[in-house]
Design a binder for these strands. Sequence first.
DNA 1: AAAAAATTCAACCGCGGCTCA
DNA 2: CTGAGCCGCGGTTGAATTTTT
Length: 324
Amino acid sequence: MARSTGCSKNTLLKKGPWTPDEDQKLLAYIEEHGFGNWRTLPEKAGLQRCGKSCRLRWNNYLRPDVKRGKFSLHEEQTIIRLHAFLGNRWSTIAAHLPKRTDNEIKNYWNTHIKKRFTKMGIDPTTHKPKSNLLSSTGRNTRTLSHMAQWERARLEAEARLVRESKKLVSTQNNKPSLSARVVKSSKATASSTRSPCLDVLKAWQSVVAGMFAISTNNLEPPPSTFVNNSIPIVVGCHESSANELDLARTGSVTCIGGFAQDELMLDDDRSNYQVPELNERFDYSMSLHDTTYHWTAATGNIVEDFSDISVHDFDYPIQQGDIH
DNA sequence: AAAAAATTCAACCGCGGCTCA
DNA sequence: CTGAGCCGCGGTTGAATTTTT
């Protein structure tokens, strides 16, 4: 299919770093008119740039909700854990990190985390020690791949929801020149017709309920008070956290990752509520840090109110009293 | 103090997917 | 159904900055 974006071929258009004057022009235009059609925007805004360049500048730098500066420990952990499932799906990872852009996360991964992994002898792609790569059994590899597939699907579905709800919000914020494409997709999202990705969440939930041995008693009524109608999934359960272990034993939460490898192998009881294949990945990569954090998987109920869906780096520990 | 090497990160490029006529 | 146009994603580049020699 022939295709020409006109960006790279048009030598009249300016490239390279943006000047403060150009930033000002772009900002002023978007503040007044919104960011409709990126291709036609530069001309309207009086910029000698291609639309792609404008979009990039806006998304990665000028957007008011972009957080800049050093990544926190929790943000780094979130990136590592999500990368263990998703690989280089930067935009999906970014959707789970409020105010961070895919470009920034990608840069951070390539310049900081990846390097540290390599130094530690951990393969940044598989999140496993390089020496262990050949020792995985076929069965384990297949199981991990299967489960990771489901988890990836779930995370991507959530990322889509976050993106869609953001679009919806920006549409409602009265930007008159938003493109027909955006307005249309937002309408579709807001209508009573369920988005297809909601079904992915539903499907994932039912499968996970089986795989993670969550009893249906724990699904209904909702087991948790800290997020309505949700199943808490603790990523990175720590052996020192008695609360998390107890909660996991009772089936009130599901644990993924964080336990030492030998514990997984030796403690049969724990294997009932853990997922060793996933733990394996996390254990290696998270040996970079010795702290835990938590996130929750939303059930179908909360999906109906999808503006609430996003995975944040919760920095509070689960307490016994939080779960009923 | 200067040069070289390493690092960082904003920006570019090309491709694939989606929408629409 | 098909093809054109647009957007977004992920990989890559290279200028600017920092660190090391």
